[in-house]
């Protein structure tokens, strides 16, 4: 398996990927460094992804108004968990969570215990039970 083949329309398949296309200035960030980053992220995260950049309205290259939008790593079937749990979740196979869930719960407890052992660090890792909703202010 080399780089994934990508071809569009009725063009013959070719090895290698298309060159990156420039994004539109000042608009949502297009993934830097190649066309298929979106595909890769989609797969390695096992979530649908939405990428939002910062919207800037410039006057003479002076930033007048910036609307900060987040990069959202979103699960479509779990919209309410949008962007909050992809990394907190259990180490499991690439899609779906399975029996490793319980495993990780234990791991997390150990991590928490370790963190508490380090006096300087307040344990701030959220667990499933104490997860609070994502702050809404930027949606």
């Amino acid at each position: 398996m080399n780089e994934p083949v990508r071809w569009t329309g009725s063009m013959p398949p070719t090895q290698g990927r298309q060159g990156g296309q420039g994004g539109q200035g000042g608009q949502a960030a297009r993934a830097p460094g190649g066309t298929d980053l979106a595909d890769i992220l989609e797969r390695v995260l096992d979530k649908g992804i939405v990428i939002a950049g910062d919207i800037q309205i410039n006057l003479l290259d002076i930033e007048l108004l910036t609307i900060k939008l987040r990069l959202v790593v979103a699960s479509v079937d779990k919209a309410k968990e949008m962007g909050i749990d992809w990394w907190e979740r259990d180490p499991t196979l690439s899609s779906g969570r399975g029996e490793l869930e319980e495993e990780n719960e234990r791991l997390r407890e150990r991590v928490a215990a370790l963190e508490q052992a380090q006096v300087r660090r307040p344990a701030r890792r959220r667990t499933k039970t104490e997860r609070t909703p994502e702050p809404e202010e930027e949606r």
Partner: peptide, 10 residues
């Protein structure tokens, strides 16, 4: 016309 559009992300 495309310049008059703003991408509001999500």
């Amino acid at each position: 016309p495309a310049d008059l559009n703003l991408d509001l992300g999500p």
